[in-house]
């Protein structure tokens, strides 16, 4: 059990890119069924999620509460479309459930809740993820568990003071079993990120984290950064990921207001066609 999904020596980058494409397809299908959604952020995160779930993380979909599983915390609950896609791809969810995304009575609402198999926390109230990841990392250390904790949070969330309380805590408690995955996509609800956030990497370095900055849509770079984050050197790890909202679908990549996408039914088909054309 403990070797389940343990990272192989030589990651198959081509296969991981294929997983990312599969995730993007799932997300577009979900968004088109609902007619709207946080699709741009999801498409931007697809490469990271593929690298995590099909290379780096140890988990068992048949036993979602396995005590020594690696934890992935999605702090930005509105990225749920990406979370459900990867949970289906990994075997936690039945793919036939995905079309219920965001519909009344669905188990898969537009923000994530932890009653869904494979979801660790209630996301959505921003600034909640990293602190809980620190707590999990601390508890796992107390128990001597080999499990690690991976927490996604966004550049927009860096405006929440609680994120910085947690960042200090992670270094104070030497959480080298914690990896922060900071999705810097440059957008938030009202448009571009409002507050001066950069230099993000320098800030985390100053807070005591071992930090690298990568193109978050470059699979080789992501896999390499994740490998570096396995170091047990007393420091929490931060991977600052520069992602492009809507990555893989040029019309969405060019869209000025990408935080929440609502388009006509006919347009979803053309967006799906763009994805396939990009990945020929």
């Amino acid at each position: 059990m403990s070797t389940l999904n343990h990272p192989p020596e030589n990651p198959d980058i081509r296969a991981l890119k294929g997983r990312a494409l599969s995730l993007r397809r799932k997300m577009l299908n979900m968004a088109s069924g609902k007619g709207e959604g946080y699709i741009a952020q999801g498409l931007g995160m697809a490469d990271c999620l593929a690298a995590l779930y099909f290379h780096e993380l140890r988990y068992d979909p048949a036993d979602p509460r396995w005590q020594d599983r690696d934890r992935f915390l999605l702090s930005t609950g509105h990225y749920s479309i990406a979370m459900y896609a990867v949970l289906a791809e990994a075997g936690y969810l039945d793919e036939t459930e995905l079309p219920t995304y965001g519909l009344n009575g669905s188990r898969l609402p537009m923000s994530t809740f932890d009653d869904i198999p494979g979801v660790e926390i209630v996301g959505g109230s921003l600034g909640h993820g990293l602190g809980q990841a620190v707590g999990m990392a601390m508890a796992l250390k107390v128990d001597g568990s080999p499990a690690r904790v991976f927490c996604e949070f966004s550049d927009g969330e860096l405006q929440e003071g609680s994120t910085w309380e947690a960042a200090m805590g992670a270094a104070t408690f030497k959480c080298d079993n914690l990896v922060g995955l900071i999705d810097c996509n440059g957008i938030q609800a009202d448009g571009p990120v409002t507050v001066k956030i950069d230099p993000v990497a320098d800030k985390f370095t100053a807070f005591g984290w071992d930090t690298v900055e990568v193109n978050g849509n470059d699979m080789e770079a992501l896999v390499s950064a994740l490998a570096n984050a396995r170091k047990q050197d007393g420091r929490p790890k931060a991977i600052v990921m520069r992602t492009t909202p809507g990555f893989g679908v040029p019309t969405l990549m060019a869209r000025e207001r990408a935080h929440f996408v609502r388009v006509d039914n006919s347009e979803w088909d053309s967006l799906k066609a763009e994805l396939e054309k990009e990945n020929v």
Binding site: G131, M138, G169
Partner: peptide
Amino acid sequence: PNRFFNVGMAEQNLIMIAAGMSKAGKIA
């Protein structure tokens, strides 16, 4: 002493860390 943690003057973090520890099996 190995099960005691002072998180400093950061009450939001106190509650987040307690929540995270509980979700990893502790009673915080």
